[in-house]
């Protein structure tokens, strides 16, 4: 790419940035009070969870999170359809193996804690799932080719668990005469916890499988 084109692109990007700031800064000064935030914080007792972000993610905007888990599943299916994974790393030395033996259980424990704590304080399914995924990454770096994941059929089950739990809860509620994912207030906390637990496992398995980066061995075409 020649110098003049680069200069032109830099200039256009700067103009775009100036235009965005020109829109953003006056808008910020005249912005009305956020009604959505007030409503979200006021309705929180109905959801049974104390953390407003968890309430938004799994109650008010549950469709959003359901479809996000579907995106995660679709990305994993895309990765699996592109062929076998990269070769595993060589087996780690004794010192690293000893550290992994400590770190992986701690990561799993911390993931479970974040899942449970996410109802009241910062944390939740995504952070807990990320720690489970990180445990998988550590295991793969230590030489385990499957990143601690089970055999191929179980991986499929784990990866679809999040979407599955969401849809099953939604359908059961539909069968009981409520709207899809419209939790009754008395059960809301426990339904959210069930969905979050399934989502944590699914996110952890999906992220670890994405790090492996290919279809697990044993799959049939």
């Amino acid at each position: 790419m020649n110098g003049r084109l680069r200069l032109l692109i830099a200039l256009l990007a700067a103009v775009l940035g100036a235009a965005l700031l020109w829109v953003f800064l006056p808008l910020l000064a005249t912005r009305p009070e956020s009604a959505l935030a007030k409503a979200a914080l006021a309705a929180r007792p109905l959801t049974g969870v104390g953390n407003p972000v968890t309430a938004v993610l799994l109650d008010y905007r549950a469709y959003d999170t359901l479809l996000e888990l579907a995106v995660l599943l679709a990305a994993l299916l895309g990765i699996w359809s592109l062929g076998p994974p990269t070769p595993a790393y060589q087996r780690a030395g004794a010192a690293l193996r000893a550290m992994i033996a400590w770190v992986v259980p701690l990561l799993v424990l911390a993931g479970g804690y974040l899942l449970w704590a996410g109802g009241q304080v910062p944390g939740g399914a995504f952070q807990g799932g990320a720690l489970l995924g990180a445990a998988g990454v550590v295991l793969r770096l230590g030489g385990d080719p499957h990143a601690g994941l089970p055999a191929e059929p179980w991986q499929r089950l784990l990866a679809s668990l999040g979407v599955g739990a969401f849809v099953i809860v939604g359908l059961v509620l539909l069968g009981l005469g409520r709207d899809f994912l419209d939790y009754p207030s008395a059960w809301a906390k426990w339904l959210i916890l069930v969905i979050e637990s399934a989502a944590t496992l699914a996110i952890g398995a999906t992220l670890a499988a994405a790090y492996v980066g290919g279809r697990p061995p044993g799959g049939t075409r």
Binding site: S34, L41, R61, A75, I79, Y211
Partner: peptide, 21 residues
């Protein structure tokens, strides 16, 4: 405001899965 926070949380996970793909 918790609503943008939830949006960003969703966005981070989608961004990483797209990066992996």
């Amino acid at each position: 405001d918790p609503v943008p926070h939830a949006l960003v949380l969703t966005g981070i996970v989608v961004a990483v899965s797209a990066t992996a793909l």
